[in-house]
Computed example of a mutant assay.
Amino acid sequence: MRTLLTLLCLVPGLLAGSAIAEVEEESSPDEPGTEVNIAWGPRVEGEIFEYSTGGETYQGYLARNVNDSEARPAVLVVHEWWGLDDYARARADQLAALGFVALAVDMYGGGQTATHPDQASEFSAQVMQDWPAARARLEAAMSQLREHPAVADTGMAAIGYCFGGGVVMNMALAGMPIDAAISFHGSPTQAVNTPQAFEGVVQIHNGGADSLVTREDLTAMAGALEAQGADVEVINYPDARHAFTNPGADATGEEFGMPLGYDAAADAASWQAALLALDKALNND
């Protein structure tokens, strides 16, 4: 969207007619430097996005640039084991500002979140131990998202954090219809019993000092994805611990005695790599 900004200089003491004449003279298109074209940046707005499956209602968060009248590719954001919280919504907002329609999904139902690691572990384990039900939740979200008028029919991608990273890796392993699966400090636990062909991109961003992810599990997941035809890239960030993209990781780790930590360099590098992969996968660049 473009708007024309004309600068008006009114000199005190002049009659109204004289002031108008001066403005018209200074605003003449024949004189350079009197007109400035201002382009509006994105205006991101978020809203609750409900979808249902298995008799349960899920409350996702849909973010998009309302200044953009064109339909854009969609990206799912799968939250950490805490549930759909402000961090997941903030990542959806970032994607919306960059030209995507982003849906932060609700994997637990009713928008519920955990406040203690024991509760978070219970919630996440219930999801990963019943992959068919987890897949049904994701498919319900994707199906409804495709119907949104702001979403282009050009493909879809998924990114995830911690628990959500494990979810998106399993989405690719299950052959779900996404063009890219990007995991940030994700748990590489295989939940899919019968892997299916997947020809998209899988990026796995892992902390080199993440004591919650073993090299054996990471290698096994990457190998399983490659065996199904995925284009897999695993990137380790030296000294980065678990949850390295979340600025609140240090405080959470201290509160609960967990080996978590934010790493600004790893966060920036992994985000840039992810955006390049999304652009290539969804915008054909």
Rank of each mutant, 00 (worst) to 15 (best):
G257M: 11
V101E: 00
N37L: 15
M221H: 02
A39F: 06
G54E: 09
E233D: 15
R241P: 03
E50R: 10
L84S: 02
M107W: 12
A90S: 13
L225C: 03
W82S: 07
Y61H: 14
R135K: 14
M142R: 00
P117N: 07
E139A: 13
A243F: 03
A264W: 01
D263M: 04
L14W: 07
E216Q: 13
A277W: 01
M156H: 00
S124D: 01
N284W: 06
R2E: 11
L95F: 07
A209Y: 12
A96V: 08
D267Q: 13
S121A: 08
S124Q: 04
W271I: 02
L225Y: 00
P149D: 00
R89L: 05
V213F: 00
Y262V: 15
M1L: 09
S28N: 15
M128D: 07
G54S: 07
E226Y: 05
A16S: 12
G248K: 10
D231R: 07
G165H: 14
A265G: 04
M156N: 00
G261K: 12
R137A: 12
I235G: 00
P132W: 09
P177F: 05
I178H: 01
F123G: 03
D106H: 14
V234H: 11
P259T: 06
A90V: 09
G186H: 13
N246F: 13
V232M: 00
L278D: 01
R241F: 03
Q203F: 09
F49V: 02
Y237P: 12
L4G: 04
A172L: 10
G155M: 08
E35H: 15
H205K: 13
G83P: 07
R43L: 15
V23Q: 02
Q144S: 14
G155Y: 01
A88T: 06
G261M: 11
A92R: 11
H116D: 14
G13P: 05
E25G: 07
E233G: 10
A243K: 03
P132T: 10
G160N: 01
E254H: 03
S124A: 13
M107Y: 09
A97I: 13
D118E: 09
A224N: 05
G109A: 03
A269N: 08
D93C: 10
W271M: 08
V151M: 00
N65Q: 09
I48D: 11
A251C: 05
N283Q: 05
D210W: 12
E22D: 14
L98I: 09
G83R: 06
G13I: 09
T53L: 04
D231K: 06
A114W: 07
P195K: 08
E22C: 11
V75N: 00
A158H: 06
A63S: 14
A158C: 05
N170F: 10
D93P: 08
Q119L: 06
D153A: 13
D93T: 12
G111L: 10
L5S: 08
I48S: 11
R91G: 01
D285S: 05
A174C: 03
A209K: 03
D85F: 10
V201S: 08
